[in-house]
Design a protein around this nucleic acid. Sequence first.
RNA 1: CGGGGUAUAGCGCAGUCUGGUAGCGCGUCUGGUUUGGGACCAGGAUGUCGGGAGUUCGAAUCUCUCUACCCCGACCA
Length: 575
Amino acid sequence: MRATEFLLTTEKETPADAVVVSHKLMLRAGLIRKLAAGLYTWMPIGLLSLRKVEAVVREEMNKAGAQEVLMPAVQPAELWEETGRWFKYGGELLRVKDRHNRDFCIGPTHEEVITDLARTQLTSYKQLPVNLYQIQTKFRDETRPRFGVMRAREFIMKDAYSFHGNQESLEETYQKMHQAYCNIFNRLGLDFRPVMADTGSIGGAKSHEFQVLANSGEDDIVFSNSSDYAANIELAEALAPAGARPAPAQALSKVATPNAQSIEDVAAFLKVPASQVLKAIVVRGADDEGKSAAPVVFFLRGDHELNEVKAEKTPGVASPLQFASEEEIIALGGVAGFVGPKGLKAKVYVDRAAAHMADFVCGANEKGAHLTGGNWERDFALGEIRDLRNVVVGDPSPDGKGTLDIKRGIEVGHIFQLGTKYSEAMKATVLDENGKAKTLIMGCYGIGVSRVVAAAIEQNHDDNGIIWPNSMAPFHVGIVPMGYGKSEAVTQAADALYAELKAAGIEVYFDDRDKKTSPGVKFADMELIGIPHRVVVSDRGIEAGTVEYTARRDGVKAEVARQDILSFLQAKVQC
RNA sequence: CGGGGUAUAGCGCAGUCUGGUAGCGCGUCUGGUUUGGGACCAGGAUGUCGGGAGUUCGAAUCUCUCUACCCCGACCA
């Protein structure tokens, strides 16, 4: 592609509303342009990279035996009513009415549509297993779109759905998809980890996320330092402390703590570490049908955080998690800011670590007062012990091997064993060997294709711009002529090199802007847009019979003989 | 949804406090000089100052109102 024929506008200054590097660079390098909050146009150069990702995904999915389909983005409400998600999905589901006043939604995901397809197209066990996927635009009306295409409302997703006659078959396909995802992200040159994950609103039993490691990520990923244990912090189990709880050594006594409500204040005021203070969290309750019920109290060690996923899974707790109001706390016999276990009339759950505390400080359920020297069982009934907290760095690994470390990750893929959640609700069955109807067992597998582009930039950039891996680069090679349109020799040599590389199938971006555009501008643009391999054609080189090669990633230069440059570049583009 | 902030040329911003008819840098267009790291000179174009209403002789500036966008907290590819 010649620069003079390509619509590319780069920016020297960073647009004011971008905060993460990938967003800044995508804007500056002209890959995307914003239309509205969470809505972006992919410009020609950005789309080239997006299509590269799609191609890799498509190849690996096909290789793993999946078949591509394309389902409508607009979906009828009836299907969503069948699974109950028309009401459950919430504000993220963009609902629209057609001219006949019928309800539709813009698909945030396609379980309903694919299950409907399955129940009409799949009739016999002989058709199983089958795995169908599509690469398509999804819409989720995010409460807070952010970070450009990283968390956009409209985005490109590869979603696949598999159907099975038994669990073993599902496991097999699940493993195949796990491997396919590893292949995809390896080919794309990403530093990623598959981690165990919570299934969230999609539902199902088992699931893994594929997380690209980056400090700007929105997820906390937990690793063992001496095994391959890896999990999203949502799911990572915090083991009970070893040994027995220390015996009480102090007497229970009440102290005035007039201005100390937070754990930090109390700890500072009483000159004890936060780990010696009992943290109380009161949340709204719900019964099995989701109806409002009495609040529930969680106790944690003061230096620990409540894990919201674990909290929501606790019996009797309202989902989504909501904190109780001051009035609700008073009704339990507590005082907001001074809640403790003493005389509390509520269902109480105690985190494993908190249950191991002795001689602790806790709220006195009186305004301006805490208790010191508190001990479970001697002073307070111990509630039900559960794992409630987020693990912290240094905790023992749940698999018993080593200790845990935490890193930030960007979720680019997620695979689920759905089971029969959707097929049962939508009566998707096939006839088995005995001619009996059998409910289909399902798996589903997503990749955020547009997010992958942003995640790759998070991992591959420097102060000058993007550094594309070959697999995602919009162009492999950039040609910068020194004095194009001025030096006849350079003009001819550059044109000839461009023609030669193009004919050899190399994707090349030829900066043929004339003498008005200074070399510095061309170098800066070439670096900003991240072309991995650059060659400079100059009078100097023509005299010496060479062209100058520079690798974008490490800046290493080489003078390559003119007649060798094609094979030289072909080798570079391969790896 | 709650809390905070912003809106002036394609982009980044000043001007708003203290009303007087809009400016800077980048980009862009024309001509010329430059040419291995974001050149220089000269000349030009571009704004319903987010929308609406009000106060005033006069509003980018003051008041009210609506809207959009951004940031911090509960969700997800």
